[in-house]
Write a protein that binds this DNA or RNA. Structure first.
Lengths: 160, 160
DNA sequence: GAATCAACGTTTGTCTCACTAACGGTTTCG
DNA sequence: CGAAACCGTTAGTGAGACAAACGTTGATTC
């Protein structure tokens, strides 16, 4: 499109995001995830937490104690980054990090009673935040969305 | 869950991502977007491009030339980051950046013939990549997904 | 039983993305 | 004319995803 052709375009068309971009699945995903991440991060920050905290605590509660490598596998956090997350959780006394007597390479991470209380709180906070995130969708649609996302994610983790 | 309770858990349960995490919409979104971004970035890198290049070129092609601020609005790229993107595009001679005679604060960005050719190529590449991204879904499901994502995104951009 | 190899936790560093703050130059408005 | 708003640009922040390498420790193999 030349300058001259563009001249008789309505001002709106010149300022809005073109359809070509709005039709890209990858773009919609990125943008929505950016919003979602911000919403979740801000919500969790209000209770002095971050989303990795929740992932680790939930994994400990549901699957029991484990080494840092195990937790890394369960949560998807890289083992390089797990160090910092566990430092934060240990500072707040939500988990305990103790050397494994059976394998001195490992640490055994255990959730503390305080960690369990915190997890219950985070569960409530996250429920509220997800309700905000998915506000425009009714329950059936939320389910549908989760199904589609999960299928895509599973496909790409198997095919990794 | 105490250490003792966890002891009689099957090894699988101790290693897999717990349901509690897999049910989080925000988490599925993040993870899928990470995969998607990597897929797209790698695919575009093979033709010496990045996704912002596509966004800018497509916006120029579909809505005509504009200032950097206009492009920023159309593409969602921050004006701080737009500078670098336009430098890369100008280096490759895909766009032209000229001072606006009517308003000396502005630059007018125009797509070049070469940019138009490049855009056509990127369109094909991106079509292929999206096909890979959405491989497990049939056309109706892809449509359904886009509809849901768009509704959520629209809601959160209006309510911003 | 010594040598090799793998796993673990840790440190360091890279790259991208979204976003803020501040600057000098320019236009617009009161 | 002066203040406010806008433009492009620079610099920097914080998070997320990831790679490389190191010392320690365990398992395997000759």
């Amino acid at each position: 499109m030349t300058r001259a052709e563009a001249a008789d375009m309505p001002d709106d068309a010149a300022r809005e995001t073109p359809d070509r971009l709005r039709r890209q699945a990858s773009r919609q995903l990125s943008q929505l995830t950016a919003r979602s991440d911000r919403l979740i991060n801000e919500g969790l920050a209000r209770v002095d937490a971050r989303k990795w905290h929740y992932a680790v605590l939930a994994s400990l509660q549901d699957c029991g104690p484990g080494s840092q490598a195990t937790l890394s596998g369960r949560t998807g956090i890289y083992r390089s980054d797990m160090v910092g997350v566990l430092n934060e959780l240990a500072e707040r006394e939500l988990v305990e990090r103790a050397p494994d007597p059976d394998d001195r390479r490992r640490n055994v991470i255990t959730i503390s009673p305080r960690g369990r209380r915190h997890l219950r709180r985070l569960d409530k906070v996250l429920d509220g935040l997800h309700d905000e995130l998915l506000a425009p969708l009714d329950p059936a649609e939320r389910d549908q969305l989760m199904r589609l996302l999960t299928r895509l994610l599973d496909h790409h983790t198997r095919t990794s």
